[in-house]
Amino acid sequence: MTAAGLAPLPSALPLGLARGALEVKRFFRSREAVVFTFSLPTVLMVLLGSVFGDHGEPAGVTSSQVLAAGMIAAGIMSTTFVSLGTDIAGDRDDGTLKRLRGTPMPAAAYFIGKIVLVAVTTVAQIALMLAVAMALFGLTLPATVGDWLTFGWVFALGVTSCSLLGIAISSTARNARSANAITQIPYLALQFVSGVFVTPITALPDGLVTTASFFPVKWMAQGFRSVFLPDSMAAYEPAGTWELDRVALVLGAWCVIGLVLCLTTFRWRRGQDG
């Protein structure tokens, strides 16, 4: 027959990178998505930060700086869990996944493309939030190599776990619109109970803090506070220390859980496709 049987199939990595380039292009062309995804956490941070003002906390730290550290965790959840969950449900809804399923594109290429998209949007998001927080609230970048390392692994584990959970939750949505609701509710609820909006976290009832401790946002926020705030602020954490080992443990566990959920629940087709 044709040469198709003989020529090697294109491999997943270059196809995935090509998909990533396409996804990024697509993302920045759909203006509402850009405005919504990017501006929301930053706008919230600016509004809440100006409400809290520069109430002095001890050690020369202001409430708005504490807020900013936690909001970065929320920003990550927004570009990963919320965006990816909605985006993939949209791909299922509008026929993107169906069309891809009719081609020899390897499944891995699709996910590599999403990883590229999430990496680009999350880095841009965090850079924007940091820049605004530095300009308005006097937040300073980590000063030590150790703090940068902590920032790096909290970021990596947070992005990975929340992305995997976003992919997994997309499969529970009937369509793109319901996916938006399904992802926004845990996103907003977790920010409330995880001490992102309410600082310090110990101001929240114990029951809420305990609930939040089962989910990633509390630990990401705690990890980022350890990076951006002086160590004396650890006194305001529930345990009185930064508990970085716990941060790693819980986020790592969610990466594993997220991966298992993705592998067991991912669907190429819509529920009603038959």
């Binding site: 198709a4 396409l22 509008d94 993107t96 169906k98």
Partner: peptide
């Protein structure tokens, strides 16, 4: 994949690719 290389599909409805 080997099989999908050999087929071409034009489905009845599609609303994707709008931003390309």
């Amino acid at each position: 994949r080997d099989w999908r290389v050999r087929i071409g599909v034009v489905a009845q409805t599609a609303t994707d690719l709008l931003d390309l």
